[in-house]
Structures are given as structure tokens and as C-alpha cells.
Design a binder for these strands. Structure first.
Lengths: 221, 221
DNA sequence: TAGATTGTTAATCGATTAACAATC
DNA sequence: TAGATTGTTAATCGATTAACAATC
């Protein structure tokens, strides 16, 4: 049993991967932790520490081979093969996601959409079959390791998630503006623009306060 | 000078606020740190610590008055008055955001969109005027404390941000899949579904590994 | 008063990072 | 070899949380 990869490290691996792909694109063969850190907006020691969780893939005095590191990082993230995605909720957002071509590009395959609307169940939206909630266990069995994308109204998100977790879901991307409660071992990531805007509002207010303080200061001095 | 509010605390205030609004909606007058913690998916001690940065707004033996705490939290987040938003990039995403009715609901006012396309500049999209990049300083001056939402292609995001920062922007919500580099004192929040999916892929893979290990175990035993 | 709950201290925990021996 | 850079240790930092005196 190796050391578990810390959450903070897992969250940074996709950023490194993006930087590495850019380098590969540019024909760069080898990269130092320093350069990779710069491209990824982090500290070089952190890069080395993070990468050390994957193994010893660097060469002292030389750096990391870009293509090999891409391979190892992708492998660690489980980005080999194609990853199934099940969309819960076939409303506006769900349909927009189903039509989004970026998924296939990134090695993701949308297996199904789940909705309660009998008008939608049985049809296809954006080439993806829509099934009823009763078929959740079946969908999850047929697509082990699928990521569930929650695009339902907030009011029903928790019960929907409970159903998916009971059917074996381990990974959930939540667009509904609610805190989901899930058992140990289930990973949840949240995408919530309204929340982010409120956080930024705090700093915008702060920025304004110090900006006006500076204005007062310079007028006063 | 009071203690600065830690970043982690600022990021949680909008979650508390959402829980508090739900409680108010339900007619609840008073809430304990325990209940608020439960609703917000965090530890009760953390709630009390976080709220203590705003001031002493609780009553020992009783709890926090919901309406008053909503007021204080909103004030701390700068959610009083209306917050200006400038959208950089009038493409698909930018237009979708301009048409999103949720902004006005949350006390946000979209001041302008900025785009380089001469076809778009001078027009209105979703009721929002589109201006050229040369008018960025003017827009930021007229809307102090505005949040910049970056909805441009990744390739130009950094230069666009540089322009806005030079014009006095303090808060940036970035939808472009790039790491932005900004000076000290400028806040950036990132919304990136592809990144979140890759993080979840890691845990989906892990979940599958342990699930299949369990299957092997139970077959073997 | 007795019970409840805050606000805060201090312990704990985990993540970050400087520093440097190992080594290409 | 000399210079560069990794991998890892240990110090530092900040965030979390248990515990409890204060007090309604």
C-alpha cells in the first residue's frame, strides 16, 4: 500500500497536465519543476512534491520528460480508456451538457441522461438516451466508474444523489446550488458560479475600500 | 485594523448565507452553530470560528438570529447595493451569461460586454452594450468594484485580464481554461468543468479499484 | 437556577515550502 | 568535473477542531 495522494495534490494534477500538453504541443521534450511551476502558477517545491507521489519520473540535473510525464499523470488520473458520464436532469443545463462536444474530445462518453419527465424518457437528446430514475442501477452497472453530473433542480438534487450512490456511484460533479451529503468514499466537486461571484464580491468590496483609502490619502498628503 | 478574514472563511460565507436564507424562508427565527453547520456540511466549531470574524452576533445559550446574521453576512460579502459585472468576450458563453436572469436576481448588474469583433461592438446582446477593448478603462471607471467575468478563448485570456487589471479590476471570475497570473491584491476564482471532471476521474478510478477488490475478496472468501 | 450555546483558546492536523544531499 | 535539478527532509505556516470558560 503506497501513501495516498493528498486531495490538494489530486486537484493540481489536471493543471500540470494542461501545462505539459501545451509544452508537448510546442515540441518541448523536457521540463524542469521550475518551468512547470511557472506555467501552472505554483511553487516549484510543490510541483516536485506532487509529482513524487506518482513515482520518481524525473532525472536529476535534467528535469522531466514531457511525454512520459503526460502519460504517468494521465494514468494516475484514470484518463486512459474512456470515462463514462451519466447526466442527472435533462433540463436546460443537462441538454447543454449533452450537446457539448468537449466531452468526447476529453475521452468522456455520455452514457445516458436520467429524468423523471415521461415526455423525455425513452427519447434521445443530443444523441444521448433519456431513461427514468428506475433505470439508474442498470445504467451504473453497465458503466462502472461513471461520473454522475447533477444538473437537476436544487430541491431534488440530494434524493437523486442518494439514488446514484446506492447504485454504486463514487464521483459526483454537482451543478445544483446545494451542499450534498454523501457517505465516506464518495467524491463530490461543486461548480457554482453564484457562489464564486459572492466570494469575489468580498474582494471587490475590499479592493474598493483600499482604493478609496488610497485616493483619500493621496488627496490628503 | 481588525484581523483579516481568512480565505477559507470567505469561501464558506456564501454557503452559510444560502443555508440562512433557507431557514428564513421556512420562518425559522434562530439557529445554533450546530444546526447551521449541519445544513452547510461543515463542523460546528468551524462555523463559530468563521462567524466570529464578522463580530459577536450570537447569543450564548440561544444561538444566532437568522435575519440579523443574513444581514451581517451579506454586508461582509459586499452584497448590499448592486454589484457591477463586466463580461469579457461576447461569444457563446458570454452571451449565455448576458442572458442569464439569475444575475439581476442576486443583485448583480451586467454593465457591459467587451469584445474585439467589430460586428458586435456597438450593438447590444441580451440588453447589454458591447464595447471594444479600448473602452475598458472607461467601463471600469464608471463601475468601480465591478467583477470581471472572463469568457474569452484561452489564448487571449491573459492579455485581456492584464488590460482589466491595469484599468483597476480587483476581482476576476475566469471561465477560460488557463492559469491567470495577476498582481498581489487581485482575486481570481476559476470555473472549469473539464478540470473538475479530471479530478473526479481520479476518484472514480480509485472507487472502481476498491470495488473490484471487494468483488475479488468476496468471490475468494 | 439548570441547561444550552457562544466565543475563544490551545492542540492537532495537514499542506506548503525552504533547504540540501543525492545524482545526473 | 562543474552545473543543474531532482527527491526528500524538516521547518513553517495556516486551517481545523476539541474543549471549555463565559454567559444567556
Amino acid at each position: 500500500m503506497s501513501t495516498p495522494v493528498p486531495e490538494a495534490t489530486v486537484a493540481r494534477l489536471p493543471i500540470y497536465l494542461r501545462s505539459l500538453r501545451e509544452l508537448a504541443e510546442m515540441g518541448v521534450k523536457t521540463v524542469s519543476s521550475n518551468r512547470l511551476a511557472e506555467l501552472s502558477g505554483v511553487n516549484a517545491a510543490k510541483v516536485r512534491k506532487d509529482l513524487s507521489y506518482l513515482g520518481s519520473y524525473g532525472v536529476r540535473g535534467v528535469g522531466y520528460e514531457v511525454r512520459y510525464l503526460i502519460f504517468q499523470t494521465s494514468r494516475e488520473l484514470g484518463l486512459t480508456g474512456d470515462r463514462g458520464i451519466v447526466i442527472a436532469g435533462a433540463g436546460h443545463l443537462g441538454q447543454a451538457l449533452a450537446n457539448y462536444p468537449g466531452f468526447a474530445q476529453k475521452g468522456c462518453r455520455i452514457c445516458a441522461m436520467v429524468d423523471v419527465d415521461p415526455e423525455k424518457v425513452g427519447s434521445e437528446l443530443g444523441g444521448v438516451p433519456v431513461v427514468g430514475p428506475d433505470r439508474v442501477p442498470e445504467v451504473m452497472d453497465q458503466n462502472p466508474g461513471a461520473i454522475v453530473v447533477v444538473a437537476t433542480p436544487a430541491a431534488v438534487a440530494q434524493e437523486v444523489v442518494d439514488r446514484f450512490v446506492a447504485a454504486g456511484a463514487h464521483s459526483i460533479l454537482n451543478f445544483a446550488p446545494v451542499v450534498l451529503s454523501v457517505p465516506e468514499g464518495v467524491a463530490v466537486r461543486q461548480v457554482d458560479m453564484a457562489l464564486e461571484l459572492q466570494v469575489l464580491s468580498f474582494y471587490a468590496e475590499q479592493g474598493e475600500r483600499s482604493a478609496s483609502a488610497r485616493r483619500v490619502q493621496s488627496v490628503g498628503s
